[in-house]
Amino acid sequence: TLFEALYDYEARTEDDLSFHKGEKFQILNSSEGDWWEVRSLTTGETGYIPSPYLA
């Protein structure tokens, strides 16, 4: 399933992933509550992002 970022986000820890509004992601793991592990389709990087920032 693909999701798109609604807002920009700046990583706060080394496990987080910074991203920009409009960036698209593949969800790798959504079992961690509000923090999902994703792969950016723009950069190929993986990390955790806050799920409320996605649509």
Rank of each mutant, 00 (worst) to 15 (best):
L28A: 01
E37F: 15
G33H: 11
S40Q: 06
L28R: 12
G33K: 08
Y48H: 10
T1N: 12
Y48W: 15
Y9H: 05
N29P: 00
D34H: 08
E37R: 05
D15M: 14
F25G: 00
W36G: 00
P52R: 15
I49N: 02
L17C: 05
L54C: 08
Y7G: 04
L17P: 02
L41I: 08
D15G: 14
A55N: 10
T13N: 14
V38P: 00
W36I: 05
E4A: 05
E23I: 01
Y7M: 09
T46C: 07
Y48C: 09
G44R: 01
D34G: 11
Y9P: 00
G22F: 08
T42N: 06
E23R: 00
P52S: 15
L41Q: 06
L6V: 06
E37W: 13
S31I: 09
Y9F: 06
Y9C: 05
E37S: 02
T42P: 00
I49M: 06
T1Y: 11
R39P: 03
K21Q: 07
G22E: 01
S31W: 09
S30M: 14
P52A: 15
L54M: 10
G22R: 00
G33Q: 11
G22D: 02
N29D: 11
R39Y: 10
L17W: 05
D15A: 12
E32R: 14
Y9S: 03
L41H: 06
S40G: 04
G22L: 01
S18G: 06
R12Y: 09
Y53P: 04
K21M: 06
K24A: 06
A55Q: 14
V38Y: 01
Y53I: 08
E45K: 14
I27N: 01
R39A: 06
Y53W: 10
T13P: 03
A5R: 00
T46Q: 11
Y53E: 05
G22T: 02
T43M: 03
L17H: 01
G33I: 09
S51I: 06
P52W: 15
N29F: 05
G44S: 09
L28G: 01
W36L: 05
D16K: 13
K21L: 11
G47V: 03
T42K: 11
S40T: 11
K24E: 04
F19D: 11
E32H: 14
A5K: 01
E37N: 04
F25W: 01
Y53C: 11
E14A: 12
F3K: 01
A5C: 07
R12F: 08
S51C: 07
F19I: 07
K24M: 14
G47W: 07
T1S: 11
L6S: 07
T43L: 00
E10F: 11
I49F: 02
T13S: 12
K24F: 13
S30H: 07
E37Y: 15
L2G: 14
T46N: 04
S51Q: 05
I49G: 11
T1E: 13
S18R: 02
L2N: 04
